[in-house]
């Protein structure tokens, strides 16, 4: 008697899982298939599910509509800000994990509050300042501003990582006469590489996705891919295939990174509140 009931429950659970997965994935399926449609096919009403795919949209956006250049801008900005965040953030994380000093709690609290500051608060003053300094529409302005979220992520995740390294290692090295910097550089940092990798991936994803700073600070030469994608909506004739091709090009790298770091993405989004 019990077995069929259990089996039915298992089926129900399986179907529920399938529904959840489909709900999450369907928009991506639609995005990719639309990107392979010509404008004529994309404007069929009702929409068609089977058609002859074409890569023409990708060709056009990459080479005629400067999406290629904006993707390169996005890569430059995301890679540079991530590198900078790791270079500045790992020593700070080490200090928070290992040293005792006054005001440590306050420093933590200050790092946490960065998660709550909306870019819209900082965007206008930075717009004015960067205009004065001649930094408007440069990669540098975006690289620096993205530190407001990449640096805290690196510090959080790496502090956790450094704490998990046994202190005995440090102490042994200290007895050998190694300097703190050398212990950090040669012993702890290599052991903390998993944390560095995870926080780098998360920094990359968040910088890659950012729109508001990019939209306000980099209108032309340094325009990033998300800011480029939204310009397609401004004409009268909305090119569906091209918009979805651009979207696919933007989203594919972050999805790959997100899957690689899937276990840690939530940790990054909650700034360590959830392990």
């Amino acid at each position: 008697m019990a077995a069929p009931v259990q089996r039915r429950a298992l089926w129900a659970e399986g179907l529920l899982l399938l529904a959840i997965a489909l709900f999450c994935i369907f928009p991506f399926y639609w995005m990719v298939t639309t990107s392979l449609k010509t404008q004529v096919v994309a404007l069929e009403s009702p929409p068609v599910w089977t058609f002859t795919p074409t890569l023409a949209n990708y060709w056009e956006v990459l080479f005629e509509d400067k999406v290629g250049a904006s993707l390169i801008n996005s890569i430059i900005v995301a890679v540079c800000t991530t590198t900078l965040a790791v270079v500045l953030g790992t020593p700070a994380a080490y200090a928070l994990a290992r040293f005792e000093f006054r005001g440590k709690q306050d420093l933590w609290f200050w790092f946490i509050t960065n998660r709550f500051v909306s870019p819209v608060v900082l965007a206008f003053p930075v717009f004015l300042i960067s205009r004065e300094l001649g930094l408007r529409d440069t990669h540098l302005a975006l690289i620096l501003m993205y530190l407001t979220f990449t640096l805290p992520i690196v510090i959080w995740i790496c502090t956790d990582q450094f704490r998990s390294i046994p202190r005995e290692l440090d102490e042994a090295a200290l007895l050998e006469g190694a300097s703190q910097w050398r212990i950090f550089r040669s012993i702890c940092l290599p052991l903390a590489m998993p944390g560095v990798a995870v926080s780098s991936i998360l920094s990359f994803i968040f910088s890659w996705n950012e729109l508001l700073f990019a939209y306000i600070l980099a209108p032309k030469a340094a325009k990033t891919a998300p800011a480029m994608a939204i310009t397609f909506m401004e004409g009268y004739d909305v090119p569906y295939g091209k918009i979805m091709a651009t979207s696919t090009l933007i989203v594919i790298p972050v999805l790959i990174f997100a899957l690689i770091a899937s276990k840690h993405l939530v940790r990054g989004l909650t700034m360590g509140a959830v392990k």
């Binding site: 996705n209 979207s247 972050v254």
Partner: peptide, 11 residues
Amino acid sequence: LVLPMATTYAV
């Protein structure tokens, strides 16, 4: 489940 929250918000 990881995919939606990583998706570029503009997209």
